[in-house]
Design a protein around this nucleic acid. Structure first.
Lengths: 345, 345
DNA sequence: ACACCTATGGGAAACGTTACCCATCGGACC
DNA sequence: GGTCCGATGGGTAACGTTTCCCATAGGTGT
């Protein structure tokens, strides 16, 4: 016996027929639009329930909205992003909108593919989390669809931004370490050359903030920056380099928790201990940092708040595409843990 | 100055006009369909490039496919899932399909919301990763859209499955620990009561495999299962309970790496050491397990292969919806690391 | 020279929904 | 009693694409 023909999905026409009204009426009820009496609404809703009708998003998108928000993440492995995502999904939980994520895109080309795909699929809004795309590309996205960029500085009329104050975050770490008596505080940064990225990318701001803070604490002569990348391997390589210095640093400020993971790995491999031989601090306050046996001092960006703010801005912009673009900056906080300790020498 | 009216997106009609052919012809070229001469194809492709045309997925979906594959994950924080995802995206990289992820859904209701949303959005296929939904719900999804379920046993005509042999995986762990001289090997499982889930869920199979293996190694009298959940907190609570036993186990088999994280946390808190006082093994071989300072013995399920197999099955089923459902089972392998050691007493 | 086939191109009707606009019906107001 | 207005309901043309089918042209075989 052949599997019988798939039953056609129930459409707005079926609902209209069943409720003995027009499709227009059903559409009005669905969208809570003006021009439907309470009795009408009740009748239509009953028909919808009885038939188990669900609107086809593609067809809706052809005329109006798809009720879908796209979110891109650069790397699904980075434990910071789930926080942001939580903020986004909880803010959107009791709206009609549905969140869909792009698969982790680790290159500029992949990121472009995903954003294009989202535009093609008629997303009502897009949230780019820590994108690496060029400003021009983000503006193209923003001019096609309401867009909010998380974790990128620099304002554009084409999109809104939400970011933390990375300079302040770096200052918190340096201040904390200096307060513990450290002077030789090194920093591992993500290498960056492109001039606009040097202004906009958080990693560049953190490195700047580190340099400024070292100066302010009179530690300029100990400024020591290793340029690798914001990955575990980058932290590993950077630490190898630092440990080979004639005079070793006593503390390392890793630009991200994921970098700190590499630092801890290299330190363990060298037979040294944290914080005994080296204090280590990260950035992002991921679940990894909070994990007991690791207990990494880190900077909390307030991922949930970032997500919530992004949603707020996005919904505002969906409601009024003409409004001026906004930039939200959040203050980071330091979360001291056991990976940093007073210098005892 | 008001922002000028958004330029209408270029459509197939624009392309047809620009290439001086019919829209039908353009459509044929887009889909590599029969009935277009090489010259026609060239002409149309040139027009597409010149105009920067991109097909509207929603409109396509109304008649044919949307070229979109939906993937649901139960928890974006679990570091096992990125492996599977990598397998999926690389397998799909040079096809026309685009992957979109549902946001982490930690409950049966959330999972249903996401799967429904994906069906509404006309996904051509859906991959459910480690779903917690009832079998009935999965069959509903499978009968609406080609579906592959990863990490769930039990066959259904409505969908294909890909899973590892959890009984064998548990046996690998027990065999490894027994080989190191351990006898009091405890297991932390995810609590399960629903009868069909007891057959289908990997956690239940692992617990079964543990019991069987203990018996086969003549260690039945030491069988000790603590029932919490597959979360970090579950591991923490389970370990607390185990450490309070009059006679403590010398080894713990955590049903998942995320559970092992909780185990390590509780052990550290109790001032004990791993593997000195307690050997710990996990399951999933996540990046966390591979992390040097942790170095957790774990079972590798071959996440990438799972993802690749799922895509293969899904594409087959999209091509032929009538074909019989298939079940793929992969063999797990043990990855011994420093968290397990020979018993020295 | 004729019928017949194949290759190529296009016209037009879907697909499911929304937006625009018009029709109708009471009741309020002068 | 006539006019006007607000509330309610529906008809219909989009939206951008694919699919079904028909038309034409040129070649092949007899």
């Amino acid at each position: 016996m052949e599997p019988q023909a798939r039953p056609r999905r129930v459409t707005i026409v079926d609902v209209a027929r069943h409720a003995e009204v027009s499709t227009t009426a059903v559409s009005k009820v669905l969208r809570n639009a003006y021009g439907a009496s309470p009795e009408m609404r009740a009748k239509v809703r009953r028909a919808i329930d009885e038939l188990g009708y669900r609107p086809n998003a593609g067809a809706r998108g052809l005329r109006g909205q798809t009720y879908t928000i796209g979110v891109t993440l650069p790397d699904i492995r980075n434990p910071f992003f789930p926080e942001i995502l939580d903020g986004i999904t909880t803010s959107l939980a009791d709206t009609e909108y549905q969140v869909l994520l792009g698969p982790g895109c680790n290159g500029e080309k992949e990121e472009a593919r995903v954003t294009e795909a989202m535009i093609d699929r008629g997303m009502d809004g897009i949230i780019l989390v820590a994108p690496i795309s060029s400003r021009a590309h983000m503006e193209r996205v923003g001019s096609a669809v309401p867009t909010v960029v998380i974790g990128r500085h620099g304002s554009s009329p084409a999109y809104d931004t939400v970011a933390d104050d990375d300079v302040e975050g770096a200052a918190l770490v340096v201040g904390h370490l200096a307060g513990l008596g450290h002077r030789r505080i090194a920093h591992i940064e993500h290498h960056e050359t492109d001039p606009t990225r040097l202004t906009e990318m958080p990693n560049a701001r953190r490195a700047d903030g580190y340099r400024q803070a070292m100066r302010q604490h009179g530690l300029e002569e100990w400024t020591d920056v290793v340029s690798t990348s914001y990955t575990q391997d980058g932290g590993y390589r950077g630490t190898k380099e630092l440990l080979a210095r004639p005079v070793r640093p006593t503390a390392v400020f890793a630009g991200a928790d994921i970098v700190a993971m590499g630092v801890l790995e290299a330190v363990a491999e060298a037979g040294l201990s944290v914080p005994g031989d080296l204090s280590v601090a990260g950035y992002d306050n991921t679940t990894f940092a909070a994990f007991g046996p690791i207990s990494l001092t880190s900077v909390d960006q307030g991922g949930r708040e970032m997500g919530q703010n992004a949603v707020r801005l996005l919904l505002e912009r969906i409601a009024d595409r003409g409004r001026r673009s906004a930039q939200v900056t959040l203050s980071p906080t330091l979360v001291p843990r056991r990976s940093t300790a007073r210098l005892t020498e």
